[in-house]
């Protein structure tokens, strides 16, 4: 599974990265997490409100700091 956290270094974006790491561990899935800070790449995904979460190329959340449990749920979908 490939997970991307989109955001240009704002406080919420860093928190989302942390939460995502925790969620991957909790869900026990095999995933790589990358942070995308490049605005051009963020725009390519059609995201206007950061932080956003992308799982396997699909934007699953934007403009929201998800909780660990919410991310676990998204991972298991």
């Amino acid at each position: 599974m490939e997970i991307k956290v989109l955001g240009s270094g704002c406080a919420k974006c860093n928190k989302l990265t942390e939460a995502t790491k925790a969620a991957v561990e909790k869900a026990g899935v095999d995933a790589t997490i990358t942070k995308v800070e490049d605005m051009l790449k963020i725009m390519e995904l059609g995201v206007m409100t950061t932080p956003a979460l992308v799982i396997d190329g699909k934007v699953v959340s934007k403009g929201k700091l998800l909780s660990v449990d919410e991310i676990v749920e998204l991972l298991q979908k």
């Binding site: 704002c10 919420k12 974006c13 605005m39 725009m43 206007m48 409100t49 403009g63």
Partner: peptide
């Protein structure tokens, strides 16, 4: 519209685009 100044850039880009 929900808006946070930390999203000002992507929002600006989205509008211009």
């Amino acid at each position: 519209t929900p808006f946070c100044s930390c999203s000002a850039i992507p929002l600006f880009l989205g509008f211009v685009e």
